[in-house]
Write a protein that binds this DNA or RNA. Structure first.
Lengths: 194, 194
DNA sequence: ATCTCTTGCTAACGAACGTTAGTATGTTTA
DNA sequence: TAAACATACTAACGTTCGTTAGCAAGAGAT
């Protein structure tokens, strides 16, 4: 026996929109496209949502929240900075892989947010990136890490992590943890066989 | 004395469009936006170009050509696969940093190409990615590289490289070569201090 | 002097856009 | 049973979109 949890219409709209925004992009997705995919008229959407941009806002800020709450796991790590970095990378990957469509929208479509949401979004991103930089700086101070430009390094790490939404398949052989471990192993120890 | 090379109007249009496509996205950039930035009327654009999409096509395929011709340098490398990989990464970074705006369009807006251009574009991308995978496979066969999933590794490398267009500033302190060397050093040897 | 090329204009086209108003119907709650 | 809510409709709004037609003026080439 399985219990069917009924999704609210608003949630259904958000999910279809996420898929559409991911494949066609926010600006190239029309409300009529979205309505058609749901089998209703475009005007009917407005019984459930306030505007097209509201959908984008909800997607972007929900993802931001998920990245933030996943970080709690990282703060509990008491080992060294290498261990902490690995935890951070795995936590980050877990969030991305849980919903690759929403992640794609989060990473690619945020620029279509209007003010003040855009500024708020960018401030959160800066803060989040700062957390990675802090681990790097701490690890360099203790000698765990090589001395590199922390911003450069942070961008390299995050770009590798953030790209996973483009190729990760939930039905594939790799679990999110496994992907995170491999990525951290790679970035921390390199490809060369020493 | 300096010689002023007069740019054709078509070229000027392409350059302004590149900047606009990069900041607002292709779909969210209107021909009236573009015309206004050039100080003319939207209809006047059509004395020089056939369509909005033609501009996107020219940007995308010009960049593709540049990535391909930069690869010649890589094929001349006679050292090991680690050296070859470094050459490939530097060549790739050089192309990106030469025009970060066009690179951004190339990486983010190609999906708005219509057929048959979209298929042609994707085929080229597959081929290009295959070249990186080949170096990885060869290097793993000779024992230079650790045994990893070559596709996974290729995606990680290219995502790190391709993100540079987002932060590289030509007037900064790092030359393209320097960026490429640091990135390859990082990915080949890792961050850990051994 | 004529022709062609470049460059730009005004006016307008049909289509698509996001959104609102007003209404109807069935379902849940009080 | 009545009120409230959820859901969807038709019709239409004002705006913007990419693009075309037709015309005009200046520059360079023959």
């Amino acid at each position: 026996m399985k219990t069917v949890v009924k999704k609210s219409r608003k949630q259904q709209i958000e999910e279809k929109a996420t898929t559409l925004f991911q494949t066609r992009g926010y600006a190239a997705t029309s409300m009529r496209n979205l309505a058609q995919d749901l089998g209703i008229e475009a005007a009917s959407l407005y019984s459930h949502i306030k505007s097209k941009e509201e959908i984008l806002q909800r997607i972007c800020f929900r993802m931001a929240e998920e990245f933030y709450s996943a970080w709690q796991e990282v703060d509990q790590e008491t080992g060294g900075n290498a261990a902490k970095m690995e935890k951070a990378m795995i936590a980050h990957i877990k969030v991305i892989t849980k919903d690759t469509n929403a992640s794609a929208v989060f990473f690619n479509e945020w620029r279509h947010l209007s003010e003040p949401f855009l500024s708020e979004f960018l401030a959160m991103r800066d803060d989040y990136e700062g957390r990675f930089k802090k681990i790097l700086k701490d690890g360099m101070a203790t000698g765990e890490f090589k001395l590199v430009d922390d911003k450069f390094m942070m961008l390299t790490i995050l770009s590798s992590l953030n790209w996973t939404h483009n190729w990760y398949k939930p039905d594939g052989s790799l679990s999110p943890e496994e992907v995170g471990k491999r990525l951290s192993g790679l970035l921390l120890n390199g490809l060369n066989n020493n």
